[in-house]
Structures are given as C-alpha cells and as structure tokens.
Simulated assay, not measured.
Amino acid sequence: MTRALDSLKGLFYKPRPLGTAVVAALWASVAVAEVVSGAQLPDGAQKVGENRYRAPGDLEKTMEYYKIVYPAGAYPRRAVVNQPGVKAVHITNPSGKNFEGLNIYEANDEVRIYVVPLQAAPAKSTPAKPAKKAEPKGGKKSR
C-alpha cells in the first residue's frame, strides 16, 4: 500500500523563479522600513519634526510604496489638496490603532509624511453633584 506522501511526484517540482523573486523583493523593501507609532515609513525617511518626515523620493514613488504597504481597498484615500505646487493625500487607518492616518504631501519640490496621531478621547465629565444647603448648627431657630 503506497501513500501519496511516498510518491516521487514531489521530487520534480520546480518553483517559479520570477514569482519567488518578486515576492522576495517586495518583502525586502517593506521589511527594512521604519515604523513610527504603528505607521510604516519608506526606507530613508528623515525626521523633520514631531510626527513629520521627509520622504526620500518624489510623490509618485512614495504613493507606489504606500499602495504596497497600505492597499487602497483596505486603507481609504482621499485628496486633501490639489492646487498648483501642492498635492496632498490622506490615507485613513481603519483600525484606529496607534495612528489615525497618514498625510502625504508634496510642496516646494519635496515630499513630506505626517503621521496623524490618535486624538485623545474626551474625558467623560461626571455630572456635578448639587451643592447641599448649609444647615444652621443649632436645631432651634433663634428669635
């Protein structure tokens, strides 16, 4: 009695080199990226302020990177600004964990990335207790 695992069919399997190479290249490009507050930044991004980074490439290259890291089907995008000299896109983080989203914008021939931090939940205010009226110390009223 022979089992399927004992057959020689598995010895002649050849993996597709192109598919393996593409997956390895994508994984390597994403694996070296920096993560800030849960948001992934392109390799070579430089910090320029609090939650603000300068991307190493142009807007198209940066958006291609984010199409791989945060697919448009799962991470909605919307144009924030589209004026001469300024282009901006907001990528929403639907999970709401660690960061609200990313603002990617191009101005003055450089691309910046702003990691939108989570907004602190407003503190629930407890209703104020009504103030008690001050009672006179003696039980009797004075005449």
Rank of each mutant, 00 (worst) to 15 (best):
Y66M: 05
L118C: 03
M63R: 08
K9Q: 03
A39L: 09
D109I: 06
S125I: 12
R16S: 07
I104H: 05
S142M: 09
A72C: 06
N93R: 10
N51L: 00
P76V: 09
N103K: 04
T126G: 04
K132D: 08
E50H: 01
L41N: 01
P130T: 03
S7Q: 12
W27S: 12
S37L: 12
R112T: 07
Q119G: 04
N93V: 03
P76N: 08
G96E: 09
I113D: 02
P130R: 10
P94M: 05
V111Y: 00
L102R: 02
A24D: 06
V36R: 15
F99M: 05
E64L: 13
I68H: 04
Y66G: 05
L11V: 13
V22Y: 07
V89M: 14
S95C: 09
I91S: 07
R78P: 00
V23C: 04
P42H: 04
A121P: 00
P94R: 11
E110D: 11
L41E: 01
L59R: 14
P127F: 09
I68F: 09
A79L: 10
K47Q: 15
Y66E: 11
V81H: 06
D109S: 12
R77L: 06
E34N: 11
G73N: 04
K133H: 05
A131V: 15
A88Q: 08
G101Q: 10
V36E: 06
T126M: 11
G96H: 14
A39G: 02
V32K: 10
K124L: 14
D109Q: 13
K87P: 00
D109K: 11
G57I: 11
T126R: 09
V116W: 01
P15C: 07
G38Q: 10
V111P: 04
V48K: 05
S37P: 01
L41D: 02
R77S: 03
K137A: 09
T20C: 05
A28Q: 10
A128M: 07
A25C: 06
A128D: 04
V89E: 13
S95T: 15
A120S: 13
E110P: 00
R77W: 03
G44E: 12
Y105M: 07
A123S: 12
P94K: 14
Q40W: 10
A121V: 14
G138R: 11
Y66Q: 09
L26C: 08
P136T: 06
N98D: 15
A25T: 10
A55W: 12
I104P: 01
E135Y: 06
K47E: 15
D6R: 12
V116S: 06
F12L: 09
K61V: 08
V81N: 07
V36L: 05
K129G: 01
K97R: 15
F99G: 08
R54Q: 06
K140T: 10
R112H: 02
V81G: 00
G101R: 08
R54S: 04
G10P: 00
N93L: 01
P127S: 07
A72I: 14
A55G: 03
P17R: 14
A107L: 13
P136G: 05
P122G: 02
I104N: 01
G19F: 07
L102Q: 04
R77V: 04
A39V: 02
